[in-house]
Nucleic acid binder design. Structure first.
Lengths: 189, 189
DNA sequence: GCCAGTGATGGGACTTGGTCTCATCGACAC
DNA sequence: GTGTCGATGAGACCAAGTCCCATCACTGGC
């Protein structure tokens, strides 16, 4: 028999989401989260650098995206590489079993400025990672930056649709379509 | 003779920038900032909701941008409206006398994650404001979102160039050129 | 000239996030 | 058994941020 219950960080994250939903982010204390998971404040901060971070992915989406771009066919143009990367994300991260969780999490994020702020920073890091991966493919910096911006926009659109309860399509195909729409809209400009 | 020294928030902001440059953001306490400005912690938090905000504009850049877009000629296409708005910003906000201050401020922002995070959120709000102003012109949502992303990219590029000590060109013309480059890069995609 | 109201500031108690250091304690090796 | 290791707990400590009340110079009415 294990000395401790397994997966402390996972229990902390689950407890946090529950409590944030029930009482709001501001009205939930780190100590309460820890107690709810049968742990203490000390252990909380051992796994998460701060209170916000408990809602952000332990896995590294950033790396997944970068790898997706890197492993796109050599002939693929920038936006196709981005589409491949988003598709890969849909297969390994935004999987169907994570959809409900993502929706709950996003609903909490939308209620609090501190959390929106953290999310904004994550997205910037994400974009930076895409830009780096694209330039590694020999794409000029400016082109890479434009492609990354458009890719992030497609991500946002696809994610909102994917979260939507009335939609049963996978993230990957939603993203591909969104990117196509974005490209078309950009062409008119 | 005035009872108190004038412009408390201005003095606080100046003291903060000085101290952040000298000792770093993390190693500077709100109390130190306040004392340096001949005030107290209480007064600091009366003017700024938190420590980060002391480095962010009291004036509303967001509104300036939105107004700039709204007052663009009716015939202007989305990106032209954005260009006009950035140009207006260069005339009213990113003026030459503010260039040195902006550079110092940006250097501090770049040293600290907490500050980068706040900046990221401000940019999202900025983009949202652009999108709203563009849709008010009758531009379809998706087109507006693409234009806003490209506009933000032009902003970033122009700002970096404007800050650069070796460059003496005004923000407005830098932004126009950047936006043209971005548009050209987007057309290839 | 006095008095009440006003507005910017100060003072200090209090909560919470976050850091740090040391103690605990079961598993496991030897 | 004894000692090491690894995950956890305990508690002191600091700084950010909130709140409420005191101060005190100025102002206007009387």
């Amino acid at each position: 028999m294990a000395r401790w219950q397994p997966d402390a960080p996972g229990r902390l994250a689950a407890a946090a989401l529950d409590l944030f939903e029930e009482h709001g982010y501001d009205n939930t204390t780190v100590i309460e989260i820890a107690e709810h998971a049968g742990l203490t404040k000390s252990t909380f901060f051992r796994y998460f650098p701060d209170k916000r971070e408990v809602l952000f992915d332990r896995g590294t989406v950033t790396d997944l995206l970068a790898e997706g771009i890197a492993s796109a066919p050599p002939a693929a143009d920038p936006l196709d590489a981005v589409a491949d990367a988003l598709d890969a994300l849909g297969r390994t991260f935004f999987t169907d079993d994570r959809r409900e969780f993502s929706g709950r999490r996003q609903a909490v994020l939308n209620t609090n400025t501190e959390l929106r702020e953290r999310e904004a920073l994550k997205r910037i890091d994400l974009a930076a990672s895409m830009i780096e991966a694209l330039t590694r493919r020999g794409i000029p910096t400016l082109t890479a930056r434009v492609a990354a911006k458009l890719g992030m926009l497609a991500w946002e659109i696809a994610f909102d649709q994917w979260i939507d309860t009335h939609n049963r399509e996978g993230f990957g195909s939603l993203a591909r379509r969104a990117l196509g729409d974005v490209r078309a809209a950009g062409a008119v400009l």
